[in-house]
Computed example of a mutant assay.
Amino acid sequence: MKNAFDLTGKKAVVVGGGGGIGKAIAKGLAFYGADVAISGRKAETLQAAADTIKEETGKDIVCIAADATSEDAVKELYAKANEALGQVDILVNSQGYNEKHPIDEMPLEVWNGMLNTNVTSVMLTCRTFAQGMIERGYGRIINVSSIRAIRAVNQGMGNTCYSVTKAAVSMLTASLAAEWSKKGITVNAIGPAITMTPMMEKVFEANPNMKNILQANIPMGRLGEADDNITPVIFLASEESAFVTGQCIYTDGGSSVII
């Protein structure tokens, strides 16, 4: 019986690969055999993530600093990734952030910044990396959406903009899946619930009671861990998902099935 998740020989780029979920996904891709490049704005963050991944998997990770909200920077990222790895087979978009403000107090520059990072950059990387995938008739694109794409936060809690951006990522995923369905490219997403990342740890430090409140609302009774997202992404990146496109796998402890 073949190793269903074997990615040996595949070339993968993880945008946002220096962050909590992105780093876990990059680690998983490397563990299952892919050659991996990670990208993000801060070179030092990328290198720290690459060092950790090598310690855990033994594989070298390519680091390419780039601002994915810039079309020129994304084109340069694409060129550098192809030069370092060869033609890219797998693209993961894990970039994004959440700056919380009630909508009536939301600074327009924050709103526009989140739309640019969480949505526009995903579109830019998808369409740029899809060029080579379309030429070869093969590609796997996996976007990181969120449970917030389909479930609003009670009383908002400053998450309206973030929820809007993740809903956009999910619809972008579905639309690109339809657009590229006959070109050999699958486009899917994962939708994590609240996940323990360095960013969330800082939020909980500032709001000590928040963790218990949020945890109580997840049917499985715990917050997500970054590694919870590895296997769903590996499935979507592998040949086992060849007939799966336009879908979102919710790594959410059951949150999406309750009111």
Rank of each mutant, 00 (worst) to 15 (best):
G113S: 10
V233P: 08
M1Y: 15
E201H: 07
V169Q: 07
A167H: 09
G96V: 04
G58D: 06
N98P: 00
A130P: 00
T57G: 08
I259Y: 09
L7I: 01
G96I: 13
Q47N: 08
A48Q: 09
V74C: 01
D60S: 15
G132E: 05
K202F: 15
A226P: 01
V13T: 14
G28E: 06
E83S: 15
E109Y: 10
A68V: 14
T8M: 03
Q215N: 04
N207V: 05
V122L: 07
L236Y: 04
F235D: 08
L214T: 10
G18W: 11
S238T: 03
Q47T: 13
I230W: 09
T160Y: 12
N229A: 06
M1N: 12
C126G: 08
R148S: 11
Y162L: 02
R127D: 05
E76L: 08
R148V: 13
D228S: 15
D228P: 00
N143G: 06
R148G: 09
K2S: 10
K11P: 01
M200T: 15
I213N: 11
A73I: 01
A4I: 06
K183W: 05
I38P: 00
G17T: 03
I90N: 07
S241M: 09
S94V: 04
L7K: 01
F243W: 03
N98D: 09
G137R: 03
T195L: 01
I249C: 00
N118E: 07
V169P: 00
D252N: 08
L7R: 02
E56H: 14
K27G: 12
R127C: 00
E225Q: 14
I134Y: 02
E71K: 10
W111Y: 14
V153P: 06
T173C: 06
L172I: 15
N207K: 14
M200F: 15
K42L: 12
K27D: 08
N154T: 12
D72H: 05
I64G: 01
E71P: 00
G191N: 09
D104C: 14
I142G: 05
G96D: 07
I141T: 13
G221Y: 11
P198Y: 06
L214G: 14
I53H: 06
R222P: 00
L108R: 02
A37Y: 09
